[in-house]
Write a protein that binds this DNA or RNA. Sequence first.
DNA 1: CGTGACGTTGACTGTAGTCAAAGAAGGTGG
DNA 2: CCACCTTCTTTGACTACAGTCAACGTCACG
Lengths: 241, 241
Amino acid sequence: MTFEKFLLGRRRDQLSAEDISALERAGGAVRPLPGRANLITQGDLVSASTYLVEGFMCRYLDDRKGERQLIAVHVPGDFVDLHGYPLKRLDHDVATLTPCKIAQVPHGRLDEIMRERPGLSKLLWFSTLLDAAMHREWIFRLGRLDALARLGHFFCEIEAKLRAVGMSDGRTFALPMTQIDIAETCGITSVHVNRMLRDLRERSLVHMRAGVVTFLDRPALYRLSEFDPGYLYLDADIMEH
Amino acid sequence: MTFEKFLLGRRRDQLSAEDISALERAGGAVRPLPGRANLITQGDLVSASTYLVEGFMCRYLDDRKGERQLIAVHVPGDFVDLHGYPLKRLDHDVATLTPCKIAQVPHGRLDEIMRERPGLSKLLWFSTLLDAAMHREWIFRLGRLDALARLGHFFCEIEAKLRAVGMSDGRTFALPMTQIDIAETCGITSVHVNRMLRDLRERSLVHMRAGVVTFLDRPALYRLSEFDPGYLYLDADIMEH
DNA sequence: CGTGACGTTGACTGTAGTCAAAGAAGGTGG
DNA sequence: CCACCTTCTTTGACTACAGTCAACGTCACG
């Protein structure tokens, strides 16, 4: 198991070689999960945290009618529920979007890291705060942007995350989500997602088809979506252009 | 300076007496801030974190037209920007709503705590994760609830937070926010906030006037707003009726 | 080749935004 | 102490963005 992707561009320089190997030793065996499967349900007590090696996962809350509101989409290199370590009980569900490969780190191991490696502990803390920063941007997206800009903003965020782990060339990337998934992310109906995707295509900004997204005009898309990647705390050089 | 409110009901039992006194020693002198003032601006580098002793504060993001989206409302006993410790640079603004009293903890002191008191470090980490849990609920509120339920849900959250620090008797509490502030919180216009407040009043659920909110029917309000305080991770006995 | 999930489109509806104006409240200075 | 000014609240009329409902198309898979 390797945490390379996680560390890529995320303050790796602040860690010693021993820190990195301590983290890698902490992770258990990599195991597969099927697509569209729940890993954790709201209210579950958790005793290990999940590191996503391959595939796409998401976290969501249900409303009374059982409709989902996605609160995060995870890509390889993300810790999907590291916050479960201090919280113990999760306030939301965790599920796969596609078939995945994950590694789980027992919380007992994290206790050892807290005792022995304050620098590494701070990096782990930092990574949960990145999630919080993304949550804030999702609040902004839902509270201040119209449907078109919400879609654009979501695409910008996921592209930036994918680029940081080498899964986007800056123009085209795989996004294995249905229009229904995107609707649950952006707080609009899937019918309206469809209309807005057409709109983005007709404006020559973004094209999406069969789980592949193509950016046709990134600067214009950033402008339309009021997207500024600062909140992702990626290194400046990664985000240049 | 005292961290009593912060520790109240928030896993105080997990800390030793030395932990508590270490935390209290770390805080600097209490100082006042005027109302409606910015403490931190997006992009600022921070070297201390702010503990709110008295008054109401908020955090927000601006859109291109300069309109605000609130992402958090803070009450006495909250660390408003503890996440600035690992993040270093803040991705949003921090401001007062009312005149406040704050204490600031230099990040150097937090480094010492990380080295010497893993248990306390974990509690601090936990408290930033509470913010993240509230962020998630705000995403849910904006993405899945209509205007009426958004208002109700916000009132429920703030009341639960205030009750945990003894500032609500479960029926009436001070909420020094204008309808404009509430609009910026709930992602609707202030005109519509006004209409929905009237609606809540006419349904005999909530009454708000001159910064004082009264719950007329809490169970019905919880139902309407799909509010479940689990995400606040308050002790069960505090939340019992 | 049939079936079910997903995508696409059109017509109609409704919730919330916009614009405008007037009323209340609170603070300041003459 | 009152007049004035600003900010906040309230209401009405009109608009528009997004939801709902329904039907049909497309694609992958068994």
